[in-house]
């Protein structure tokens, strides 16, 4: 029983790590650009497909292929911002929300158009599970966890400790005051989009390596990542990440008692409960005027 419990806990943390990177990105976009970004999933998918093409068709070494995937997702994110979202700044939130659905549809079906809807896999050597006491862990999951924690710490450091982070917080709190203090909101937005696209891209590539690459892989994770971010408090990127880990744990442990097919349901049910008590999420800030 203990072994099963531990195994589920480990799986839950891994699931949390997969959701943490996009959840942090969603929270950053929410805080700085002010809307729920529904096309975030396609950033993940695009990175996975780009890395797959680089590794599979061009036979680039894996690190280069991963780098290529990250560059492509960064370009896609910046492209979305410059091509669409920037022109909608100052409009009601709903406009941006719906525009991001349009972007998501365009990119998701663009991928289906170019690569078909079949699953693809990275050309990776076969893995062997590592036995740590009673628990079996896949090597890729260890990489995934390491990447998630590195990203979490990196974003923490960037947000709290660097000039760029201070500017980001300044722009998100009060754009006009930030502009008066000689901070360029345009540059901050650009930096933010590069950052969140790389985060999303990294999780997309890792997820593709762990499971399969498919046109809807990002979208499928996105709903959960959104739920996690809202659970933890979407105005706070670290709250969102913690929300992701908690939700991963609860869904994996929950299936010990609830049928597996309802795993996603547990998460959404949990969120509704939490929002009843804490309408801004577990670590959310008070309602901003």
């Amino acid at each position: 029983m203990i072994a099963t419990l531990l195994q589920h806990a480990v799986d839950g943390i891994v699931l949390g790590a997969i959701m943490a990177l996009p959840a942090m990105g969603l929270a950053l976009v929410w805080r700085i650009a002010g809307f729920p970004h529904l096309a975030h999933g396609s950033l993940m998918t695009i990175a996975a497909y780009a890395a797959w093409v680089a590794a599979g068709s061009w036979n680039l070494p894996l690190p280069l292929a991963v780098l290529f995937g990250l560059v492509i997702s960064a370009l896609a994110g910046v492209g979305m911002h410059l091509g669409v979202y920037r022109h909608l700044a100052g409009r009601p939130m709903l406009n941006l929300f719906i525009a991001s659905i349009g972007v998501e549809l365009f990119l998701r079906y663009g991928i289906i158009f170019s690569f078909g809807s079949d699953f693809q896999t990275f050309p990776l050597p076969a893995e062997r599970g590592m036995h740590l006491g009673p628990v079996v862990v896949r090597p890729l999951d260890v990489i995934l966890l390491a990447a998630a924690f590195a990203a979490l710490l990196g974003v923490w450091w960037m947000f709290r400790g660097t000039q760029l982070g201070r500017r980001m917080r300044a722009v998100s709190d009060n754009p006009s005051l930030a502009r008066l203090s000689a901070i360029s909101p345009a540059r901050v937005h650009l930096a933010m989009w590069v950052l969140v696209s790389v985060l999303a891209g990294a999780s997309g590539i890792l997820l593709g390596a762990r499971d399969v690459i498919a046109p809807t892989m990002g979208w499928d994770v996105l709903l959960l990542a959104f739920a996690a971010a809202i659970f933890g408090g979407i105005s706070n990127p670290f709250g969102a990440a913690i929300g992701a880990f908690l939700m991963g744990l609860v869904s994996e442990l929950g299936i010990l008692w609830i049928p597996t097919s309802y795993e996603e349901g547990i998460a959404f049910f949990l969120i509704m409960l939490v929002l009843l008590v804490k309408p801004r999420g577990l670590f959310g800030e008070a309602v901003r005027a």
Binding site: A99, G102, L105
Partner: peptide, 10 residues
């Protein structure tokens, strides 16, 4: 078809 819908939406 869905790409066009997405584009039209944007």
């Amino acid at each position: 078809r869905f790409m066009i819908i997405g584009l039209a939406l944007v």
